[in-house]
Design a protein around this nucleic acid. Structure first.
Lengths: 315, 315
DNA sequence: CTGAAAGCGCTTACAG
DNA sequence: CTGAAAGCGCTTACAG
């Protein structure tokens, strides 16, 4: 009888509905030393503006990315806040698991950005596949090398800092190299970030001319700074993320490639996923892998301008 | 007195307004031989769906990309249609100029995609900078080459076919090479597409082992097919666009890099620019250069999946 | 030319 | 439990 394929007008629905959905975001705050998390925050703020007319409000609960306790405190605040949806970066997997379990009970939808947890009922995930990004880095390394050469995989960071992500990048790089670059050898070097900060130039003891390529699984700018001071040229350096420091070294030609994971867009689209789900009852795609964008000095400017302005499809 | 910063609710405005804006699109139709223009059309259709609830309708006027007369006919139809906004690919610059002049008189806003015309009053442009894309191709070529080597720039296509675009790609490649790859020599080869289609394997007379890299300013799959049949390996092949043929050769490893200009997103965002301008009276950024996306076999799948699904920020 | 009323297509509180 | 009425925040045709 009701076979008429009636489609309600969503604009009218929003206006008539007295609902004012409240979203909560749980991501790390950024610091002058680590600006990475500024981008997701900007994505959130941009999305918030765009959907304000639909009655949606967004509240941010920022935690210390090195302090699991801070994460737990903020997540409790969110539960008290009783939001209609949550966007979170599940940096600390144990604490995040406990938190989303409570959200499940309360039937509050939640979206992961940056990294994900397996076997959770998240509405959606926006982020990168770290293993594949490591493979891509190895491919770029392969074409940069001339023949039989040695490269280094350098991990910089605290023990707890995004460990899984970093390891997966390394694993991807290794897997690709072993399969596709048989005549390349590599060594793995680990440096805690505290040590690096104090004595950059001495601690990274790169065996001079033997190394022709470096894959920095994080903080490429620190290695770039080291290479610049040492006056080392001709080392192919591949890293991650368009932070200000990295960009400077990319422009100077010290960093050759940066792989970008579109952190602003991850957060922007995460908010939109919640918005579309809650307000428009739309179906949401669960896994959204961001493309592995390759940035060089040639496409840097277009990329930056584009990424900063695209989100709203207008200025 | 009215210093109160009152912001009208756009959702209510749309509902109350009896306006039903009608958009017209003027782009080439695609054919089995040239599927490129399918992507922009899909972008248009996707955007159309999303904004239907706002009362906007979209009408497509497709022309033959090799026939200026076809362009002119369709543009006349659009003038009779009296749209509230126009999206067009100004493939034929003279005809397009005449058309947009009439739109100016009628005060109908219009947006360029794919390529642009200078000194026109277009609301917006979404496309790529072909010169910079050529530079990027040269950079990729540089890192792929081992030392002193010869590369070829190969242009395939009819005389009239996107000439400006193609030439600019070539010019960008040359400019970068001359400046940054002093020990590389290159030759420029031009093939009309008609000849190619008939005798692919014989006409491209690539001087065997002397060539170690090829920059295909268009139709890379034709060259890839040639290389495959000849059994030539180790030639770095760089081309454009994620067409089905190109993708197949990228996966096989015969094409090494494809530079993508996001044709679907160009059109999608073009429609959104018109929508936001007409319905929401939003300010629109005039020049929107798409990033020069570098696609390899490693990031191909993520890229495809992402691009095909991102537009609506949901599935 | 100004101002109050009707209406956009829905949802929801309320009367029956 | 059902159905008609009121109302979301605007615009616009219409009465004065």
């Amino acid at each position: 009888m009701e076979k008429t394929n009636y489609k309600p007008n969503l604009v009218a629905r929003v206006l008539a509905s007295r609902e004012k959905p409240r979203l909560a975001c749980l991501i790390p705050f950024h610091t002058p030393e680590n600006m990475y998390w500024e981008a997701p925050l900007n994505g959130i703020l941009k999305a918030e503006k765009e959907i304000a007319d639909y009655g949606v409000t967004v509240n941010n609960f920022l935690f210390d990315q090195y302090a699991p306790d801070s994460f737990r405190k903020r997540s409790t605040e969110i539960l008290n806040f009783q939001p209609d949806g949550v966007l979170l970066a599940p940096v600390f997997s144990i604490q995040a698991s406990g938190f989303v379990r409570k959200l499940d009970t309360l039937e509050i939808p939640y979206v992961f950005i940056d990294s994900t947890l397996k076997n959770e009922n998240n509405l959606s995930f926006f982020g990168q596949d770290p293993f594949r990004s490591g493979m891509l880095a190895a491919k770029l390394m392969k074409i940069s090398l001339e023949s039989t050469e040695t490269t280094a995989i350098i991990n910089i960071g605290r023990e707890r800092e995004n460990t899984h992500h970093i390891r997966e990048r390394e694993n991807g790089f290794k897997a690709y190299s072993l399969k596709n670059i048989p005549n390349m050898s590599f060594q793995v070097l680990n440096f805690p970030s505290e040590e690096i900060n104090n004595k950059t130039n001495s601690i990274i003891n790169i065996p001079g001319t033997e190394i022709s390529g470096i894959f920095a699984t994080s903080a490429a700018h620190i290695i770039a700074d080291h290479l610049e001071h040492k006056g080392v040229k001709h080392i192919t350096l591949i890293g991650y993320d368009l932070t200000r420091d990295n960009i400077a070294f990319l422009e100077k030609g010290i960093i050759d490639f940066l792989i970008c994971q579109k952190p602003m867009e991850q957060a922007f689209r995460g908010i939109y996923a919640l918005f579309h789900h809650i307000v428009f009852k739309k179906q949401i795609r669960k896994n959204n892998l961001m493309p592995l964008d390759i940035i060089t000095s040639e496409n840097l400017n277009d990329y930056l301008e584009f990424e900063l302005n695209k989100e709203g499809y207008y200025e």
